[in-house]
């Protein structure tokens, strides 16, 4: 090959976008996050239930169990249902796994480490979140199975009940920082994290986020005990693996968004780089969410709807009103 091509490849390898897309928050980060979090989830849940959890694969505490499971999924046959819409059946897992990664492009990992720096970063993240129920609905309909259809209907109910309070509570943060740009939002938390300025908003956002990323106690669309596996019932093999992968990417994006909005994002004492701080905060939040999965039972769909409509939305609106009053009467909290 000519030296020009080599230098071009070398330039690409050295460019920041390449590092961002490949390492963090790109492919390597997502894959490593999924592998570690699936293992940690199984291990922590096992410890909560006083079991051992994964033990044998890999030398230490079954750390390679997830990789073994992924290999198993790769070699498994998948059998599409006879009356399924074949194109949608095969294509949606790819989109379910790839669309949530777009939310990661808006998250700042340090002041100048954003894949897609934009003044509307928060809106991009929310727009990507809003796509997930659509994909779930297409999946459930394409499988042509009663469980998947019920599961996808539940996804729509749940996401309407969870997404409105999610947006409304994030509005308080936007009002305080005066920007939709996630870097600006993080930078305006230098004095005090927004979790302390807006405890109500943070709580509403946290609960709505659990509903949005469909985790226990709000994993109603994939309730294993009632619907077989919700809208993912008919999938097997690596297609199922892709669906689970997408679920964990959504998990990563949701926790990163909470950390960015309320826990000061990449801010922290300077003895560690900013990227380490956001990952540490994210790890603590992931641990808390796994612990919540071990502690609470699943709610019914009507209970979730009543929480979402009767409590979260009014509380989020109350939070917006309180923030307006704070900004009007005590403008010094804006840092001015």
């Amino acid at each position: 090959m000519s030296p020009d091509l080599w230098s071009l490849i070398w330039d690409i390898l050295q460019s920041k976008l390449f590092l961002e897309l490949v390492f963090i928050p790109g492919i390597a980060f997502i894959a490593l996050f999924t592998v570690i979090v699936v293992w940690a989830e199984r291990k922590i849940l096992a410890r909560v239930m006083m079991r051992y959890g994964p033990l044998h694969v890999g030398k230490v505490a079954g750390i390679l169990q997830t990789i073994a499971d992924t290999l198993k999924l790769l070699f498994k046959e998948f059998i599409p249902p006879r009356r399924a819409h074949k194109a949608a059946y095969y294509l949606t897992p790819v989109f379910v796994a790839s669309v949530p990664t777009l939310a990661l492009t808006a998250i700042p990992f340090s002041k100048d480490w954003v894949v897609f720096p934009s003044d509307l970063g928060l809106l991009i993240a929310f727009a990507v979140f809003a796509l997930s129920p659509l994909l779930a609905m297409i999946t459930g309909w394409a499988c042509n199975n009663r469980y998947t259809v019920i599961g996808s209907l539940r996804v729509i109910f749940q996401d309407v009940a969870a997404e409105i309070p999610l947006l409304l509570s994030a509005l308080g943060v936007v009002m305080l920082s005066g920007s939709f740009n996630l870097v600006n939002i993080v930078e305006s938390q230098r004095r005090l994290w927004f979790a302390f300025l807006q405890p109500l908003g943070a709580l509403v956002f946290f609960i709505a986020l659990i509903g949005e990323i469909e985790r226990v106690p709000f994993d109603i669309p994939t309730a294993e005990q009632e619907l077989v596996f919700g809208w993912k019932t008919e999938y097997g093999g690596i297609l199922f693996g892709l669906l689970m992968f997408g679920e964990y990417i959504t998990f990563a994006a949701g926790t990163l968004l909470f950390v960015t909005l309320y826990l000061g994002g990449y801010l922290g004492p300077s003895f560690l780089p900013p990227m380490a701080w956001i990952l540490i905060k994210m790890g603590i939040l992931v641990f808390l969410l796994i612990l919540i999965r071990g502690a609470y039972p699943r709610l019914r769909i009507d209970q979730l709807l009543s929480i979402g409509w009767k409590w979260l939305i009014p509380l989020a609106i109350l939070n917006v009103l309180v923030t307006m009053d704070l900004i009007y009467f005590y403008p010094w909290i804006l840092g001015g």
């Binding site: 410890r47 006083m50 612990l291 502690a295 609470y296």
Partner: peptide, 18 residues
Amino acid sequence: KPLCLAFTHMFRRVFTIK
């Protein structure tokens, strides 16, 4: 309370045997 209980359970003796 259940959250604290779940956290303390993590450090208890394991019930199952290998």
